[in-house]
Design a protein around this nucleic acid. Structure first.
Lengths: 235, 235
DNA sequence: ATAATATGACTGACTGGTCAGTCATATTTG
DNA sequence: CAAATATGACTGACCAGTCAGTCATATTAT
């Protein structure tokens, strides 16, 4: 579906194109991985650099408006290099999300439900989430999932399977016990475990829209929700 | 970067371009406003049709990826007509948001804080929000604000001024009284009135991402939060 | 060890296609 | 018929994705 021939025919001399660029150490793979590294390691470093740059650009412009050329420049790489590591723009986005958020659920599941009081359990979950997501670039990735997810059904489905379906039942299970034991005065949380994460999402959205007018402390917001859940009783 | 010249050269006569389209009553302004209407009314109807179509397209594709040509087709109008009513794509978006969400704050402020118990007050607010936003296309507009807002600082600022700054203090004021009277056992809500709306945002986001796997009733989620606030005591 | 050869990460000019916005023209209406 | 409204072909800019070519490094042969 194109003319892959013309080029070959009227090829002008155009002698050493990449020479200067490659001799310019400031953007070589060596800078990204350091000296004394194998090809494999450098390649991996380049890949990471592209992912980091993609997060920056996607966050700033949104997926559709982000320019791969800018991602490349920010990563210190040529545009074509992106295609050495990722099939296309959409795959780049999906890999970014997967590699960033994948490990979080495991962390949350390490919080033990049975050896803690309900309040301690929820506090630990809240704390972990605030530290591992709200306190890192992962909050930007999560924001991208919220804002771009609707246009990536594939991505939404993976998230439902890998994150929601693993986290919510775990949470609900811990809460059911607590409710049965009378540690919770309402079954609202058991019916809607989403309420525990709601403040985090508000914080993420608020931050993107209104931070410059009035900052909002996401961790504090989550703690306030836990207060609410336990009727304001001090710990 | 292509041949922008060829086209100009081989210009054929092309006599009456729009003739057929305009004679096709199925897409005339008359259809949109009905017969016996003034020019003003018809123009306004066209404008509304464009806004409605824009909401559909922006919701489905996102602002950047939505094509104005599709908006026009959906509105039963030619692309140029959009520019008769709106300066550019961005203005169209801003007008859409303003005209849709503008009236909501007024509705919420009509709920009286002082003649009701705290619980009734929050229930009325919740109910109103669920009915006027979650239950209408306004939820899609609000979703657009959440997802596209970060790239429209102008829009975010207007929202902060017109909505946040008018709604939150009103809410906080009602809550302070309730807390002083002992109707609330925690000051969490007074410090973070955002917690009341958090479930609504979760519902909106969830709906866009996961509705096909597991629907979530936004109104019920908001009621559950009110339950939580009042420690599960029945009304 | 050293030269010859192979590998594959990386480059960037280029292509096809897309789309916001324009404007000369056409139609309708008061 | 003048003003208001609407039309859609056209333009210019933009950008994802391609691919022939380069070069440092890795592998193999001598």
């Amino acid at each position: 579906m194109k003319g892959p021939d013309k080029r070959r025919v009227r090829r002008p001399p155009k002698p050493k194109r990449a020479a200067r660029a490659l001799r310019d150490k400031s953007r070589s793979a060596e800078v990204r991985a350091g000296p004394g590294t194998t090809r494999r390691e450098r390649s991996a470093a380049t890949r990471e650099a592209i992912l980091a740059a993609a997060l920056d650009e996607f966050s700033a412009r949104g997926f559709a408006a982000a320019r791969l050329e800018d991602v490349a420049r920010r990563a210190g790489v040529a545009k074509g290099t992106i295609y050495v590591h990722f099939r296309d723009k959409e795959t780049l986005f999906e890999e970014l999300v997967r590699s960033s958020l994948g490990p979080v659920v495991g962390l949350l599941r390490q919080v033990p439900a049975d050896t803690l009081t309900a309040r301690a359990f929820l506090e630990r979950l809240t704390e972990t989430f605030a530290r591992e997501v709200l306190g890192t670039r992962r909050k930007d990735v999560l924001r991208l999932v919220l804002t771009e997810g609707p246009r990536f059904p594939q991505l939404a489905q993976v998230h439902y399977r890998e994150i929601i379906q693993r986290a919510l039942p775990m949470l609900r299970k811990g809460l059911e016990g607590a409710y049965a034991r009378g540690e919770l005065t309402s079954d609202a949380l058991v019916r809607f475990p989403q309420l525990l994460v709601a403040p985090a999402l508000v914080a993420i959205v608020w931050d993107a829209l209104f931070a410059r007018f009035e900052p909002l402390d996401g961790a504090a917001l989550m703690r306030a929700q836990v207060d609410l859940i336990f009727g304001g009783a001090a710990r």
